[in-house]
């Protein structure tokens, strides 16, 4: 019996740049080309200025932890062997309130602190799917 496949993003969605970026090892966030506002999740219009000129741009991958939860029950076959795992919300340094839903890795739940500095890295789940996850930032 083959291992369960990971859940995949919606095909053809405007978030395609996010996933192709992750496969290249880049965190890409949609940005308004008119006013510079970052937008996440991707949308067809800028909520600040109503421009439709939006593109995915690479960001630093640095941020801070806004909140987290350690999931103990699998809600999908792919995650049966992965529980418990950390679901997290990270605020990226590029813009106040710019948050991404992600996973927190290489840290024990007991050591997680809201506000801690985190840095993106990439985890390959299948040939087609790589996800941007975050780990505690290493002091420079």
């Amino acid at each position: 019996m083959s291992a369960p496949a990971p859940p995949t993003p919606a095909p053809g969605a405007i978030s395609e740049f996010f996933w192709s970026g992750a496969r290249r090892g880049q965190l890409m966030i949609q940005r308004c080309q008119a006013c510079g506002t970052y937008i996440h999740l991707p949308r067809p219009v800028c909520r600040a200025c109503h421009s439709f000129d939006l593109l995915g741009e690479p960001v630093s991958g640095r941020g801070s932890l806004y909140s987290f939860t350690e999931t103990h029950r699998p809600f999908h076959p792919f995650f049966v062997d992965r529980v418990p795992y950390l679901v997290a919300v990270v605020e990226l340094e590029e813009q106040a309130g710019l948050r991404v839903l992600t996973n927190l890795v290489r840290v024990a739940e007991a050591d997680v602190r809201i506000g801690m500095a985190v840095q993106v890295e990439f985890e390959r789940l299948s040939d087609d799917l790589t996800i941007p996850v975050f780990a505690p930032a290493v002091a420079a």
């Binding site: 990971p6 993003p9 978030s15």
Partner: peptide, 10 residues
């Protein structure tokens, strides 16, 4: 589709 790959479903 932006949440499920991170195991965020429920």
């Amino acid at each position: 589709g932006m949440m499920y790959p991170f195991g965020d479903f429920s």
